[in-house]
Simulated scan of single mutants.
Amino acid sequence: MHTRTWLCWLVAAAAIATLAPHPLYHILLMLAVTYVFVARRDDRPLARSFSLFARAGAIIWLGYVIFAVVTVGGPRGATVLVTLPAFQLPVWLGGIVFGGPITAEALAWGATRGLGLWTLLLIFGAFNALVDHHRLLRLAPRSLFHAGLAVTIAIAFAPGLVQAIQDITAAQRARGYRFGSLRSWWALAGPLLAGSLERALQLAEALEARGYGRTLTPRPDTGRLLALLAGLSSLAGALIGWLWAGPATLPVVAPLGIAGLLLTGWAAHRLSRHVPRTTYWRERWHRHDTIACAAAGLGLAAVAAMRLLEPTALVYYPFPTIIAPSFDLRVGAAILLLAAPALPLRAPLPRRARRINADRRAARQTAAQQGAFAD
């Protein structure tokens, strides 16, 4: 699939996970993302990084649950499950209270918050495992090529780390080494650290050999650079204002964010005109990409409309008394639209393959006609 299709899918999935902080919707979204990964995965080392993101999300979710029920500092909720001995830290350490009454509401709140982060990690893990990072780098604006290269190297860190761990583990086990206590895992940590440093040096030498950072650049355009900084500052201000004050500031931060986005896009486009770039091979946009992007956009639009019209239907809040979470079939159907990339649609053949097939069909028809004439 096209790289822009995966970007559209990533934005839609992450936005839906943010707009609908509900455990049932998050579980359905995790199932849809996992189904897309299983249907689209290949044999590249990048595909192995999905399990790493899944395990990290499970650890974060467990940590949220533990801290939500242990560091409550007092009764939160009406359904008390068990009462633990309370212990309060000194004031200079924050005065946090460990223990006390553990309620079902606090447990549900911690599980819901941790599940949201787990869902986001699964979404980014699937994107990291399915997208081609080299094609992703080509989509970066030419003026932001250096930042795009740094981001691409950072994204490729997870699959490279997984591959290195598997190689080192297999090599140690082939030598008869067995991992048991914590001290025995130094046989993995030492070679992993040395291999990471060696790969970093090889990457630096490769960039140096290709003349990275030594190209002649024209005189910087101060006005457009200031416009780019102003646009990014407006976006950051709108995001901070919305996170700090909540949805009540939406009429104020929305115009600021839109203006910052437009100014950033215009400045990046104008600055990119001074940076030459050639393309050896361009990706082709197929019918499957159109269907996947349309489904992701439709699902995001439906969830956003539900958030504006019925905001309480997408949010689960277990306080003051825990209740069973409700489920809206309309939201569930919108989330299932994100599984469109996994549909088994047949991709169109390249032009050369279509021409070869047409020639073969014509040859078979000619042979059949000659055989009928001979009879």
Rank of each mutant, 00 (worst) to 15 (best):
G100F: 10
Y25T: 01
F50C: 00
R330V: 15
Y64P: 06
H134P: 06
W266I: 15
P311V: 03
A32M: 11
G125H: 00
G160N: 07
L345F: 07
D43Y: 13
R352I: 07
A174N: 04
P311M: 08
A17F: 04
A187N: 11
G260E: 09
A324R: 15
V80W: 05
H2Q: 06
L338Q: 03
L188M: 14
V72G: 04
A362H: 13
L115N: 00
E283I: 14
A340D: 07
T222Q: 11
P311R: 10
G246N: 08
A304T: 05
A267D: 08
A333F: 15
T222M: 12
V252M: 09
L225E: 07
L229G: 07
S184R: 13
A154K: 13
R364F: 12
A267I: 06
F145Q: 05
G57K: 01
R219S: 12
L62G: 08
M1D: 05
T34V: 08
I240Q: 09
G223T: 05
T312R: 15
P318H: 03
V69L: 09
T312M: 13
I27Y: 02
F98H: 04
V82G: 09
V91W: 11
L262D: 07
L256E: 12
R354A: 10
A104I: 10
V331R: 08
G299Q: 12
R178S: 09
G73S: 01
H133E: 04
W281H: 14
A129R: 03
G195R: 03
G99S: 08
T18K: 04
P90Y: 10
R4L: 04
R307E: 10
A14M: 00
E283M: 14
A156K: 05
L309H: 15
L84N: 09
L28C: 05
T321L: 15
I66C: 11
G180Q: 14
A111E: 00
F127D: 00
L139R: 07
I102A: 10
A254S: 14
I323R: 14
Q370C: 02
G332N: 12
A313H: 15
L130F: 01
Q163G: 00
T366W: 07
A294G: 08
T5R: 05
R284D: 12
A187P: 02
I27E: 01
W109I: 07
M1G: 06
R284H: 12
E198R: 15
T112Y: 00
E283P: 14
V72H: 06
